[in-house]
């Protein structure tokens, strides 16, 4: 096991591995027949995966009474935003090649792109305020309420993922199930806590 002190640095490096892997495939010209789409999809997929990892930390703590997942919550969240930014840059700079008119049309007309954009817009303030400084500045309760938006972002990211395909498939169903499970855990614990008389 990694010691607690090494946990965060180790996770920091681990979260970069998908990017390194993708970079390796790019350099080997191994991104398949449609490398632009592959690049874009992989980055989006990593963003969603990081987001779900971040959302899994609190439920893991609640269910298993582990403390260590909470140390990783911010890291995963920041990485979700990091990969989302790379994903967005690929879309703007490579897929659409800065064709702002087409991009504007896409965001307005294609609901699949609209929810992607909405997700990114939701993640932006969360990434900015993910630091302890902001936690203090906002006050813990306000900060917590703001960061519940992560779940909304999780849902919109998932819808974006589902809509990208022509049909519901194995991958999207698995990711949808994971998100439903995490939300259920949160709701169950929230209901349970509400029943306890001295906790307000």
């Amino acid at each position: 096991m990694v010691s607690r002190k090494a946990l965060v640095p180790a996770a920091f490096v681990a979260c970069l591995l998908p990017l390194a892997w993708l970079g390796g495939r790019y350099l080997r010209d191994d991104l398949g027949a449609n490398p632009i789409s592959e690049l874009e999809n992989r980055l989006g997929f990593y963003a969603l995966s990081m987001l779900l990892l971040s959302l899994a930390c609190t439920p893991a703590q609640l269910v298993f009474k582990w403390k260590w997942p909470l140390l990783l919550r911010k890291l995963f969240g920041d990485y979700a935003f990091f990969y989302a930014c790379l994903h967005l840059s690929t879309y703007v700079g490579i897929d659409q090649f800065f064709d702002w008119r087409e991009i504007g049309k896409d965001v307005v007309k294609r609901k699949f792109i609209t929810v992607g954009m909405a997700t990114w817009v939701l993640l932006l303030p969360l990434a900015v305020t993910s630091t302890q400084g902001w936690q203090k500045r906002l006050g813990f309760r306000k900060w917590k309420r703001l960061h519940r938006l992560t779940y909304v972002a999780g849902v919109t990211a998932l819808v974006h993922f589902i809509w990208r395909f022509k049909t519901l498939n194995t991958q999207t169903s698995i990711y949808a199930s994971i998100l439903v499970l995490l939300l259920t855990v949160r709701i169950v614990f929230w209901l349970r806590r509400r029943k306890e008389p001295n906790r307000k």
Binding site: N34, Q96, F97, K109, R110, F112
Partner: peptide, 19 residues
């Protein structure tokens, strides 16, 4: 005629950069 979730106005020819 767009697909409900994406535009059919342009396409990427496999092997090309711009649509």
């Amino acid at each position: 005629v767009d697909h409900p979730r994406w535009s059919q106005g342009r396409e990427r020819r496999i092997g090309e950069f711009l649509k």
